[in-house]
């Protein structure tokens, strides 16, 4: 798959963080980019759009990113969910990886980090 054909879902309660990442992803030529502002919306948008990659914040209102991750993995065990959070403590890392996260990015997230994740996803090695 080429990177431009990927479908990407960005889940973050910060509109600023979503817009910033959306700009980076769109600049790579990816057209199908969806956004969710909390964990519940993330699960719903995943089920609706079946994205190839999900960038998931952890600290969000209603349900957290970890809980949303668990629900997505339950729905689709092959889901590629990358935690993109400000709190990359050992505890959060372990919890996310146990719940099935494909990778973990510590905020602030550079454009290079985002691109590397998407390139790996396109190659099928995420």
């Amino acid at each position: 798959m080429v990177i431009q054909d990927l479908k990407v879902l960005i889940c973050d309660d910060s509109m600023f963080a979503r817009k910033k990442m959306n700009m980076t992803i769109s600049a790579l030529g990816i057209n199908e980019v969806f956004e969710a502002a909390d964990g519940e919306e993330a699960v719903a948008k995943y089920k609706e759009n079946k994205p190839d990659v999900v960038f998931m914040d952890i600290i969000m209102p209603r349900i957290t990113g970890i809980e949303a991750l668990k629900q997505i993995i339950e729905f689709d065990p092959d889901a590629k969910v990358v935690m993109a959070s400000s709190v990359g403590t050992q505890g959060h890392l372990k919890e996310a990886l146990r719940a099935g996260a494909a990778d973990f990015l510590q905020k602030p997230i550079s454009d290079e980090d985002t691109r590397a994740i998407l390139e790996n996803a396109a190659k099928g090695v995420l």
Binding site: S14, S85, S86, V87, G88, Q106, P108
Partner: peptide
């Protein structure tokens, strides 16, 4: 959020 997150990771 970013400052607090980096602080938490550091600690």
């Amino acid at each position: 959020n970013v400052v607090n997150g980096l602080f938490a990771v550091n600690q």
